[in-house]
């Protein structure tokens, strides 16, 4: 979250705030929009919203942003991988899938985004697709019945597309 990492275009933020009429009841929707644009919530953006919207403060916006797991305070990757670890996925082997992804992308425990910024990894509780367990979602595309081998192939394909492999 260093200040030099992003140059925020505050006009974009103004646009989002205008869309939601600067109303504090739309805070979550605003934050979702900001995250859509930047792939995370830059600190300056949260401060800006806290200052501009009546009845909010930077600390309050930060409180909401850190309360919900859907918001990330660090930049997410170009490909957002969600590994479901709900009960059904867990018993059908989501952990080996998760470990395979970590190995492939060199992600240490606690690290969510890989160094080249291409991939970020998130564990979610349940995607509601228990019949397809274990499930992964990469940028809104659902991959059913994953195994460590299957996910490796998928990641290899994506890496090749990006010209990294």
């Amino acid at each position: 979250m260093s200040e030099t990492s992003t140059k925020l275009d505050f006009r974009v933020l103004d646009g989002i705030l205008e869309q939601y009429e600067y109303k504090k009841s739309y805070l979550i929707a605003m934050l979702q929009k900001v995250q859509e644009v930047y792939r995370y919530l830059p600190e300056e953006a949260m401060t800006y919203i806290g200052e501009k919207v009546d009845g909010l403060s930077p600390a309050t916006v930060y409180g909401v942003a850190t309360f919900y797991a859907q918001f990330s305070l660090e930049p997410k990757g170009k490909y957002e991988i969600k590994v479901c670890d709900g009960t059904a996925c867990h018993v059908r082997g989501s952990m080996p899938v998760l470990n395979a992804i970590r190995n492939k992308l060199n992600l240490k425990e606690g690290q969510t985004t890989c160094e080249n910024g291409l991939f970020s990894l998130e564990i979610v509780s349940c995607l509601g697709a228990c019949g397809l367990a274990p499930v992964c979602v990469i940028n809104d595309k659902v991959y059913p019945q994953m195994t460590s081998d299957a996910i490796s192939v998928i990641l290899d394909t994506l890496l090749k597309e990006e010209g990294v492999a």
Binding site: M46, S57, P58, A59, T60, V61, Y62, G63, T66, F67
Partner: peptide, 20 residues
């Protein structure tokens, strides 16, 4: 009306602090 202090994080990790 300043809300300099707020709750951040969630559950057992909750803290009271200024922005970030």
């Amino acid at each position: 009306g300043l809300q300099v202090l707020g709750f951040a994080n969630r559950g057992s990790k909750t803290v009271v602090e200024p922005m970030a």
